[in-house]
Amino acid sequence: MTCERWRDLILTDYLDGELSDADRQGLAAHVAGCPSCRDLMEKAPTTLVKPFEALEHPAPPPRVWAGVVQELGLDPQAVDPDRAGVPPGGSAAPAAPVRGWAGRHPWLVFGLGVAVVALLVAGFLFWRQADTAGRPSPAAVEGVVHLMAGDPDAERVIRGSLAFDTPEETFFLPPELFPGERLSK
């Protein structure tokens, strides 16, 4: 084997610990009589390997994981390894696929839905009953408002009474609120 071939072997398999037993013995025999190859064998580790040995494997900052979670639309709390009991580098506990809040509480969602529908129905019935319980029609109210034209206090009271369940008697306004001259308009 030529010096060039031994040199190639020093720069590859020797440096990287991949020499076969036969090559290791052959190389030892060669460098015993070849100062040039011996010199390369002695210097190569310092020159070609050592500068990289001190390098570390820095962990990416937390924002990288946050970016992954955000881009994939994952639930941040559900994939938090601390909450999931997953040690870094360890295996995860068996877990169902992550679902949203509604998926985790189906009966609560159903109950809320029923309650909303019931409230809407009750509200509608109440409105119908109030409308037919002797409440003055909007046209009648507008008529009185028209009579009270120019008196903001009176108009506020009349319209305000509509916002509530207006008993018939409150519709007949106290005389002190409406000066005679205005009523006579």
């Binding site: 570390e56 494997h57 820095p58 962990a59 990416p60 990288v64 994981w65 992954v68 994952l74 639930d75 559900a78 994939v79 938090d80 390894p81 999931a84 997953v86 870094p88 580098g89 360890g90 295996s91 995860a92 506990a93 877990a95 169902a96 696929p97 992550v98």
Partner: peptide, 18 residues
């Protein structure tokens, strides 16, 4: 499984980043 994916991320993130 999202949690399993998270475990894989935390096991290999430094390798990929390096």
């Amino acid at each position: 499984d999202h949690r399993a994916f998270a475990a894989i991320y935390h096991a290999f993130a430094a390798l990929v980043f390096s």
